[in-house]
Simulated assay, not measured.
Amino acid sequence: MRFLLGILIWVAMVGSVWLYTAARDARLPGEPARAKAVTVVQADFILSLTPTFSTQKDPFALDTGDESTSDLVIRLNGKNIDLPSPDMARGQELRISRLPALLPGFNEVYINAGPPVSESTLFHGIRVKLTLNGASMVDKTIWAGHGERVAGTVGFTLDPEKESGHD
């Protein structure tokens, strides 16, 4: 009798686990979700950066021997932007005319630059300006305190229907 009771309990436990997993798997989607088609806004956007300092390589950074690394990093929606010049001079505007991957909806520009160590007692900033056909769309300044790196994001929203009316 004990033997039959042990088999009955074992069948009940294994059966309940089997029923639970079968019901759980039945609720899963049949095929993987398909990626949405990404549309890119095609227009003549210009990103202008004007710093209040000259960029300088961090003297405390790890030296890997690779001279291609810059102390200025600019990303648009998470993708690095190739710069015409890796250095920026105080008050000189850096213009980037071919902006990749501007999407309809929300976009974000990330900037990270290192001011000179000799100017660690000053506040520094970078003016970020985005223009479309000469009309200013975004004009913000990223500030940093004493001796800090100037780093921040500037977010903006693009409406393709609205932007196409600027012609």
Rank of each mutant, 00 (worst) to 15 (best):
V11L: 15
V73H: 06
D167V: 14
I126A: 03
R24P: 01
E108Y: 03
V11F: 11
V117Q: 13
G91S: 14
A33I: 03
A101C: 01
K57P: 04
V117W: 13
L4F: 11
L132F: 02
K57W: 07
F123D: 04
N107G: 08
V150G: 11
E148R: 12
E93H: 00
W143K: 04
F156Q: 05
V150Y: 09
D66K: 04
N107R: 06
T64N: 12
P160T: 02
P100K: 03
A12V: 14
I96K: 10
E108K: 15
G30V: 04
D82W: 01
I46Q: 03
L72G: 06
L5T: 14
L94H: 15
V40F: 10
S16M: 11
S48A: 11
T39Y: 11
E31Q: 07
A151C: 02
D63V: 04
D139T: 02
L94N: 12
V109H: 03
V73S: 09
T121Q: 13
G15H: 08
G155E: 04
L76Q: 13
P104Q: 02
L4D: 04
V38P: 05
T64V: 15
T50D: 08
R75P: 00
E93Q: 08
W10Y: 13
D66I: 08
V38I: 14
E148S: 13
T52W: 03
A135R: 15
L83E: 12
L122N: 13
T121S: 12
W18V: 03
L5C: 09
L130E: 00
T64K: 12
D63H: 12
V154H: 09
S70C: 09
Q42S: 07
T131M: 08
N112S: 06
F156L: 07
L28H: 01
L28V: 08
A151S: 13
D159V: 00
V150N: 15
D167E: 13
G125H: 10
K129M: 14
I9T: 07
L62W: 09
R127I: 00
V14E: 02
V154Y: 10
S97V: 12
R27P: 00
L47H: 09
W18N: 01
D82G: 00
P104L: 05
Q56G: 02
R24E: 08
I7D: 05
N80A: 10
H146C: 00
A151F: 04
I96N: 09
A26C: 01
D44G: 06
I126V: 15
T141Q: 11
P160A: 02
R98Y: 05
A144L: 05
K36P: 09
G145C: 10
A135M: 13
G91Q: 13
L47W: 10
S54N: 08
